[in-house]
Design a protein around this nucleic acid. Structure first.
Length: 565
RNA sequence: UGGCGAGUAGUUCAACUGGCAGAACGCCUGGCUUUGGACCAGGAGGUUGCAGGUUCGAGCCCUGCCUCGCCAGCCA
């Protein structure tokens, strides 16, 4: 696996961001004996999205660049919401991106025993206690930003009593919520997280891996740093909102007998993208309220959605590497992501002709009943992609948008009296139209110039437009789905608005009458092709002749129209 | 209200210990072209959040301010 970005932006050794600088410094200082180990620690309670991809790339790339290792660790400390099928989906998505956990999948739940021992160690040191207060009381007594907290009446229990109660908690003697184990730090600490944080809570749920073995479960703060330490992680990279947790992360590790060096937590800004949402809550709302068809709906920013949409994993990785890592909260324009997708697909995808909104075109002077095979280039960007044969005859379909009765200025396509080139075919000139009863155009009539089969006219005439087309007789019927942005606003939910207010109901458009050239039959399920002049389209993995638009081509005419309003 | 973090083109990021503020995407022009694609060339776009200070020289150092984000789950 290479890291070179062909845009010449950043070869790995040259790539520079504050985390890589830090690691370079650590190596120079010998902080971790020149070792680099990272981890990607998702909770198996949902599907991965492109924001996770940024973290995955950062962690795996960083380790690889410095000759270190990176593991996938499922942070499965809360059996209430975590499920085995999420764990499997996470593994699948990471593999799809092309990364592999160095030591297989690791689980925080594998450390429950060690974590429990460490908890008793803290109790014995007088640094943890069992609190009988309920959640509401604990919350109320934690104080506020301007007032210190109030100590629990149970804060000064004896070590023996704490030990007994904690063991009873673990044995299942109490109901959920009845008691918790808390660290004994400082109820007046300016950092609220240090006001005696909860270490263990009681949960009577089946855990996806440990079953009913445990009924006390460690909180994130109690589990995370220690899991890092157990695995030998050197750099524990997380998002900015954990910044305030770092003192706690360090405090726990400083008060335990660690097997090795204390790992170092570093925070970076999570990814945001315009016209979409990346919060688990909002993504779930989209699914639950039926705005989308599921977690793998091609409009979703989930890795499963992007996969169905046809986004190549390499493009997603290039994008993640390009946006870089910093400590500034920001929102990347979705156009940047799309440009990486186009760049990759332009290089790799085969070309085919497809007519999305067919308009019949009759070539009046083409010998009736004759059919000829035209040679078409499969990918002008890749000479090795070869050519294919496309049947051509006198009855074709062209794109309805490619014809106008009264063309405005800058419309170069077909119009009465005008000559255009048919891609890989001949020049045709519009001689008239047949109008339907309702006034719409039913058919375009043309004549063709048999001397333009090379794509050139002997007299040097150069049409301003080249159209794609499909032989009516040989066309494969199919369906195409067009996708637009999920949200109309660039920043859904900005200024306190409800993000759903800007949900774009027109984000999906089904076209049922598409016509494909015969060679579309060569396109495998899941494969992405370029429909010439239209964009990149992914063949549905299940349904034949059903295509999802990955992303459109840059479209000058559309831009002119948009400018005109 | 306290603490922490962050402010550099429209957007995301660069700018080694202080030395003419750059790139990518987007936008605009032109070229080329059997995709209005791709490609090539060029252009516009900045009071580096603001105000002072130190210095021959400040995006970078100092002081004060402003704005934004995060933190009061037995979520992660």
């Amino acid at each position: 696996m290479g890291f070179a970005d062909s845009r010449g932006l950043s070869r790995p050794s040259e790539r520079s961001d504050f985390i890589r600088s830090l690691v370079r410094q650590e190596i120079a200082d010998g902080t971790f004996a020149k070792r680099v180990q990272t981890r990607f620690p998702p909770e198996p309670n949902g599907y991965l999205h492109i924001g996770h991809a940024k973290s995955i790339c950062l962690n795996f790339d960083l380790a690889a660049e410095f000759g270190g290792i990176c593991n996938l660790r499922l942070d499965d400390t809360n059996p209430e919401t975590e499920r085995a099928h999420f764990a499997a989906a996470i593994e699948e998505d990471i593999a799809w991106l092309g990364y592999e956990s160095h030591s297989g999948t690791l689980y925080a739940s594998d450390y429950f025993g060690q974590l429990y021992e460490w908890a008793e160690q803290l109790i014995n040191a007088g640094l943890a206690y069992v609190d009988d207060q309920d959640a509401a009381t604990i919350s109320k007594n934690r104080g506020s930003f301007s007032e210190p907290g109030i100590s629990s009446p149970f804060r000064d229990r004896s070590v023996a009593e704490n030990l007994t109660l904690f063991r009873q908690m673990a044995a299942g003697d109490f109901a959920a919520g009845e008691r918790v184990l808390r660290a004994r730090i400082d109820m007046a600490h300016e950092n609220m997280l240090m006001r005696d944080p909860v270490l263990y809570r009681i949960r009577h749920y089946d855990h996806h891996r440990t079953g009913t073995k445990w009924c006390v479960y460690p909180t994130y703060d109690w589990a995370h740093g220690q899991s890092d330490a157990i695995e030998g992680v050197t750099n524990s990279i997380c998002t900015l909102e954990f910044d305030a947790h770092r003192p706690l992360y360090d405090w726990f590790l400083d008060h335990l007998d660690l097997p090795g060096d204390r790992p170092r937590q570093t925070e970076f800004a999570r990814l945001n993208i315009t016209h979409t949402v990346l919060s688990k809550r909002l993504l779930m709302q989209l699914v639950d309220e039926g705005h989308v068809e599921g977690w793998d709906d091609p409009r979703m920013p989930t890795l499963r959605g992007l996969r169905r949409r046809g986004f190549p994993p390499s493009a997603i990785k290039d994008f993640c590497r390009h946006v870089g890592v910093a400590r500034v909260d920001g929102t990347v324009e979705v156009e940047l992501l799309e440009s990486f997708v186009r760049r990759e697909l332009n290089r790799t995808s085969l070309r085919r002709m497809a007519v999305l909104n067919p308009l019949p075109l009759l070539i009046e002077n083409y010998p009736s009943g004759q059919v000829e095979m035209r040679e078409a280039v499969n990918n002008p960007e890749d000479p090795f992609a070869g050519t294919r044969q496309v049947p051509f005859d006198g009855e074709l379909f062209i794109e309805r948008d490619d014809f106008m009765l009264e063309p405005p200025s800058k419309f170069y396509r077909l119009a009465p009296g005008r000559e255009v080139r048919l891609r890989s075919g001949y020049f045709v000139t519009c001689t008239g139209v047949d109008t339907a009863a309702d006034g719409t155009i039913a058919r375009v009539r043309c004549s063709y110039d048999p001397d333009t089969g090379s794509g050139q006219a002997p007299d040097g005439r150069r049409p301003k437009a080249t159209l794609h087309w499909v032989s009516a007789k040989h066309a494969i019927d199919g369906q195409v789905v067009l996708y637009e942005r999920l949200f109309a606003d660039s920043h859904p939910g900005a200024d306190g608005a409800d993000p759903m207010d800007s949900f774009n109901p027109a984000s999906v458009q089904h076209l049922e009458n598409a016509k494909f050239e015969a060679a579309m039959a060569d396109i495998a399920p899941g494969q992405v092709v370029q429909f010439e002049r239209l964009g990149y389209f992914a063949h549905d993995p299940i349904t034949t002749n059903f295509f999802h638009r990955t992303v459109g081509l840059r479209d000058e005419w559309a831009r002119i129209q948009k400018r005109r309003g």
